[in-house]
Simulated assay, not measured.
Amino acid sequence: MATESSRARSLNETRDRILGVALDVLGENPDAGMGEIATAAGVVRRTVYGHFPSRLDLIRTLTERAVAEMAAVLTEAAAAEAADVAWARFVARVWPVAHRYRVLVALRRGEFGEAIHSLLGPVDVLLADLVQRGQDGEVFARHLPAGVLSQLAYNAVFTIADSELAGGASGVRAATIASLLVLGVPEARATALSDRS
């Protein structure tokens, strides 16, 4: 019984290592293949395919993890009274997740776009609801529908996460201010919210 438990633990550790390495490898090269991921993880291709029968399965698993992490952060942050405060808290808390999973933005535009888009659906709905709340409360602009505006602001966060600004406090500050500006928050308020988050 203890042997089965250690074997299961070992399999889970290998799977987690593959996923972690895959994020790094795909972050450097979104077109990287399973062989490159296997080499970087220090395992043979067969091991990678044993855990993830296809590249799509690997991408789906990465996306599912990202969605779970982002939805949890967003749900917690959305409890703030004002929508602009909630957005700033969300960006500050989601920053490590956004930076870690930034490759999904590039992959979303490629062959796995449809699968990634469908898995990100729950996060998209939560973001649109938050932006709608901000529009209803007149803290966010109404120049676009909430669903479109939320995606633009959210993509600003991922764009900065994928840039040279990504490291440290300057990246999260830039992402918070830029996304709030996209949402129509005045610059002084966006800066103040960023400094507070």
Results as ranks from 00 to 15, higher is better:
residue 72 A to H: 07
residue 34 M to N: 05
residue 114 E to P: 01
residue 58 L to R: 11
residue 157 V to A: 03
residue 145 P to K: 08
residue 42 G to M: 11
residue 73 V to I: 10
residue 38 A to P: 11
residue 115 A to K: 04
residue 63 T to A: 10
residue 67 V to N: 03
residue 32 A to I: 09
residue 100 R to P: 00
residue 60 R to C: 12
residue 22 A to F: 07
residue 108 R to N: 02
residue 63 T to E: 04
residue 24 D to W: 06
residue 158 F to I: 08
residue 143 H to L: 01
residue 156 A to Q: 13
residue 153 A to K: 09
residue 58 L to I: 11
residue 25 V to C: 12
residue 54 S to K: 11
residue 77 A to P: 11
residue 58 L to V: 10
residue 48 V to C: 06
residue 85 V to E: 15
residue 76 E to Q: 13
residue 104 L to M: 08
residue 125 V to T: 14
residue 43 V to P: 06
residue 53 P to K: 10
residue 130 L to T: 04
residue 24 D to I: 11
residue 23 L to Y: 00
residue 78 A to G: 13
residue 101 Y to L: 00
residue 110 G to K: 11
residue 66 A to D: 08
residue 82 A to Q: 15
residue 80 A to P: 02
residue 111 E to D: 11
residue 139 V to S: 13
residue 40 A to K: 14
residue 63 T to D: 03
residue 97 V to E: 02
residue 101 Y to F: 14
residue 117 H to T: 12
residue 116 I to E: 03
residue 101 Y to W: 05
residue 59 I to K: 07
residue 122 P to Q: 04
residue 112 F to D: 14
residue 85 V to Q: 15
residue 24 D to H: 13
residue 40 A to D: 10
residue 73 V to H: 02
residue 51 H to R: 12
residue 67 V to M: 04
residue 61 T to G: 01
residue 69 E to G: 04
residue 106 A to V: 02
residue 58 L to A: 09
residue 36 E to S: 14
residue 74 L to R: 10
residue 111 E to R: 15
residue 116 I to S: 04
residue 152 L to N: 01
residue 152 L to R: 03
residue 37 I to V: 15
residue 56 L to V: 11
residue 48 V to F: 06
residue 120 L to E: 12
residue 158 F to D: 00
residue 83 A to S: 14
residue 153 A to P: 08
residue 99 H to F: 00
residue 138 E to H: 15
residue 56 L to H: 07
residue 87 W to E: 06
residue 54 S to M: 09
residue 74 L to S: 08
residue 73 V to A: 13
